[in-house]
């Protein structure tokens, strides 16, 4: 699971109000090289919750993103785009879990695939 996907996921257990972002429990993180595409990154920038991405990448062992939401002008910086690219697309949570911030419910991640299925009493 890439961090872009993490940025799009929230807990939807019955009664949970926000459920975002899910906390990451990382057991195994792998880095996989992905073609660098500035257009894609510029396109996604406005759709990303920055704080969730910065925090998640730290949990995954990558400390290069600024904590504060960067000004869109940084999108002209190749250096920034490279870091954004790496955090968003190249860090994969292979084994671990995503944890609902409100209930503490764990959604397991095995072989890079999160299991978001809810139990009957959670729907």
């Amino acid at each position: 699971m890439r961090l872009l996907t993490h940025n799009m996921l929230s807990s939807n257990i019955k009664g949970v109000i926000n459920g975002f972002p899910l906390l990451i429990q990382a057991e195994r993180v792998v880095e996989k090289q992905v073609d660098f595409n500035p257009d894609f990154l510029k396109n996604m920038f406005s759709k990303i919750d920055w704080k969730a991405l910065a925090d998640a990448s730290k949990t995954m062992g990558y400390d290069e993103l600024p904590d504060e939401v960067p000004d869109p002008s940084v999108l002209d910086s190749q250096e920034f785009l490279q870091k954004f690219h790496h955090a968003l697309l190249e860090l994969h949570l292979e084994e671990g879990a995503l944890v609902c911030p409100e209930t503490g419910r764990r959604f397991p991640v095995n072989k890079g695939i999160p299991n978001m299925l809810l139990h009957e009493d959670e729907v």
Partner: peptide, 19 residues
Amino acid sequence: AELLTTNIAAGLEKRLAGL
């Protein structure tokens, strides 16, 4: 492709809305 075990799109419906 990014894969999820889920019912239809549960978990994505909030943040992926309109995208």
